[in-house]
Design a binder for these strands. Structure first.
Length: 434
DNA sequence: CACTGGAGCCAC
DNA sequence: AAACGTGGCTCCAGTG
């Protein structure tokens, strides 16, 4: 993939001086003086462990969270709760360092004559998914808009081209359905007016589906539905959803969420200790019931499949994926449920990518596929070939694949995003494929 | 100096 | 009974 080398160098320098400035600010802070007195020559502004000692042992802040090995937890969320300007700047500086040292310099090191050539491994991942390295093409920031911009501006198409990204929508959920064939899930997938995440958000927050805002849906999806699919349980769901209420200022028809829940008999989060039985009137108790209904009433066939699939694994010591690969060895319960879905979902993407590439080569197109991110294909597309490329890709990914893999019993769908001609990856915008 | 585990953080 | 799946990369701290 082509790299904007000039932009990369310029941005790297800018970040360097921003980080230097922040370092100077920190060094003139009284907290640093104490740090310095404590550690002398060994003082290291990049050491969270040292900072933890200063905050908790010297300055008397209370350490509320620890890592599994018993050290003070010093991640961004935990530090965010510490009321100390020094810590705030420290966290911001660490974020900038991540962007510069991991992503920008990673790209820089691997750039050769203006292009990166990441490796895409097909033989290293337990689940038969892929991985990528040197640089890792599959984890460039996008959720944090600022970080996403700084980094994705590095990626540009060749002259007269656009970057085109085509994603499968909800691929893993659909492939899971090919395994368990739960009728309610099949309906959710087939009927576009239905929306599982909206419905579950409504249950979690005790409101009507029509009252579910974009933010509530997001939380229902990422703090209940997906964690449940991966094998999480209600205590963690309750904690995450409860935290989101204040963090995101949730409301139902203009009523603050906590007030809304009060009106519906929920007065507190609850202890959230797995040993203890959840008490009535707590959010935790409510989520326990939501979980129970989710598996027993809404998706009982899915639930049965999980139990049966795991039982079979225990008996046979392994299983085959729908794409014909064998998975064996010592696996946990969640692994047994998740591996076949992840692997087969990726194989759908991989098969499509291979067919699309064959078509490009056979027809001597100037367009090239430049990367892949588990359920999406990234290409460098010549302007004259754009429309045809989008249509061929969509046909392969949603139609032809179903002739190849007869076990796919659900419709597949794709979404496409394109950049302006000569525009960077950051500038991608969604387009219709007619 | 090489190596390793822990911790953290980015993506799907 | 158990309790979030898959990766890669960087930095720190400790070891030999």
């Amino acid at each position: 993939m082509r790299i904007d080398v000039e932009y990369l160098e310029k941005t790297s320098k800018q970040l360097y001086s921003r980080i230097k400035d922040m370092e100077e600010d920190l060094k003139s802070d009284k907290v640093f003086k104490i740090w310095r007195r404590q550690y002398g020559e060994r003082t290291n502004l990049g050491s969270r462990e040292q900072l933890g000692k200063i905050l908790f042992d010297v300055l008397g802040h209370e350490c509320l969270h620890r890592t599994p090995t018993g050290r003070p937890k010093m991640d961004a969320t935990t530090m965010g709760a510490i009321d100390e300007p020094f810590v705030k700047t420290f966290v911001e500086m660490e974020q900038l360092k991540k962007i510069k040292n991991t992503f920008l310099s990673g790209i820089q090191k691997q750039t050769c004559d203006g292009f990166i050539h990441p490796s895409f491994n097909l033989h290293t991942v337990q689940t038969y998914r892929s991985s990528s390295d040197s640089p890792n093409f599959q984890n460039f920031p996008i959720r944090d808009r600022k970080a996403g911009e700084l980094i994705r501006r590095c990626f540009i198409p060749r002259d007269g081209h656009r970057i085109v990204e085509i994603d499968y929508t909800g691929l893993e959920v659909r492939i899971a359905a090919c395994y368990h064939k739960d009728p309610t899930m099949l309906e959710y997938i087939k009927d576009e007016s239905k929306d599982m995440h909206r419905d579950m958000a409504a249950e979690c927050f005790k409101c009507e589906p029509e009252q579910v805002s974009k933010e509530l849906r997001y939380c229902g999806k990422n703090m209940f539905v997906f964690p449940q699919f991966y094998g999480d349980f209600y205590v963690n769901n309750a904690r995450a959803l409860w935290e989101s209420i204040d963090a995101m200022n949730h409301e139902v028809d203009g009523v603050p969420m906590k007030e809304h829940l009060q009106q519906n008999g929920i007065h507190e989060l609850g202890l959230c200790e797995p040993q203890e039985k959840p008490r009535p009137g707590t959010f935790e108790k409510h989520l326990q019931q939501v979980e129970k209904r989710f598996w027993n009433e809404r998706f009982p066939t899915y639930d049965k499949w999980k139990k049966e699939w795991y039982r079979k694994y225990l008996k046979q010591g392994g299983f085959n994926t729908l794409t014909g690969f064998k998975i064996e060895g010592l696996l946990g319960r969640n692994d047994v449920i998740n591996y076949p879905v992840q692997g087969s979902a990726f194989h759908c993407l991989l098969w499509s990518l291979i067919q699309l590439n064959k078509w490009l080569v056979k027809n001597k197109k100037r367009t090239k596929i430049v990367g892949q991110i588990h359920d999406s294909i990234v290409s460098d597309v010549h302007e004259d070939e754009l429309d045809e490329f989008l249509q061929v890709a969509k046909t392969i990914m949603t139609q032809k694949i179903r002739n190849k893999f007869k076990w796919i019993n659900v419709p597949l769908d794709v979404e496409a995003e394109i950049t302006p001609i000569n525009g960077s990856w950051f500038e991608k915008k969604e387009v219709e494929i007619k």
